[in-house]
Design a protein around this nucleic acid. Sequence first.
DNA 1: GCTGTAAAGGTGTTCGCGCAACGTTCTAAG
DNA 2: CTTAGAACGTTGCGCGAACACCTTTACAGC
Lengths: 155, 155
Amino acid sequence: MTLLHDEGLTVEELAVWRMLQRVQARIARHLEADLLDAHGLPLASYEVLRQLAEAPGRRLRMNDLAERVLLTRSGLTRMIDRLQRETLVTREACPSDARGLFAVLTDRGAQRLAEATPTYLRGVRTRFLDALGGDEVGRIKDLLHRLGGPDAGHA
Amino acid sequence: MTLLHDEGLTVEELAVWRMLQRVQARIARHLEADLLDAHGLPLASYEVLRQLAEAPGRRLRMNDLAERVLLTRSGLTRMIDRLQRETLVTREACPSDARGLFAVLTDRGAQRLAEATPTYLRGVRTRFLDALGGDEVGRIKDLLHRLGGPDAGHA
DNA sequence: GCTGTAAAGGTGTTCGCGCAACGTTCTAAG
DNA sequence: CTTAGAACGTTGCGCGAACACCTTTACAGC
């Protein structure tokens, strides 16, 4: 229980944070590689398509979508540009607010998502869940939920 | 316990992975911002300096260091270039292997690290640990350790 | 000794992202 | 009605990272 400096952190606590970083990065990198060379789809793009697929009307406001996929609005603009170039997504005006735009999943986008999803799920299974006991999923979920703040809950 | 596709994942399991991503990204972004505007030091640079400070002789082979900070070798080359420009790090030849280079922490680097560390630790405390009960640290450490694979253990 | 293979590190290039600034539209206060 | 401020999305810019490739060195087999 050796304390570090005057912040009252133990080395163990610090190590936990480092581990969290490593684990997340490692898994994300694997998933990215899997998706990329099986479907030419970056992980971030996959997440965007998935969010849209889950949203009512397959559409989400840019701002809203940006928050969900942890991108800035400008970052999302470029991402949607790319996806639109591949005709996986369209932009549609928002009737109730002329400032707003919807990102809308196209049929091709939905199909592409469907193709990639098995790869993604298999990756999550093998890179992540297999290392955990089934009962531990519930516990880690509980812990992460506490860390996720007030949002972060989208079953 | 609804299952997804044919991979045998539950929605809960998938949600846990998403949460892990969100939590890590959110915290890292906060730490980055804190370090950046208090000391003009990106989080990744901080991690490099810290790894060097903890290493015997304040030095690490480039390849070795790259793995620890989750960078490719080329990424680390540029990073060390930058840190060297600020005289926080030096490169030294490896006596036993002419191909090898050490990245070595300078005194200025150590000092800069010391200045930034309270900010870093305070960030980890407030953005991460405060949301956890003390007893939960041990549990999450155990879980992450399992996910971290054979390495990832540096107290 | 040579030769082939692998490893270490660096370089050219490309790409994705965040920040700051901008135009547009909505909304509230007067 | 007018005007100040905020919200939404986009754009110019610079930075940081990965990928593919290159040089140099180490090490194995013959």
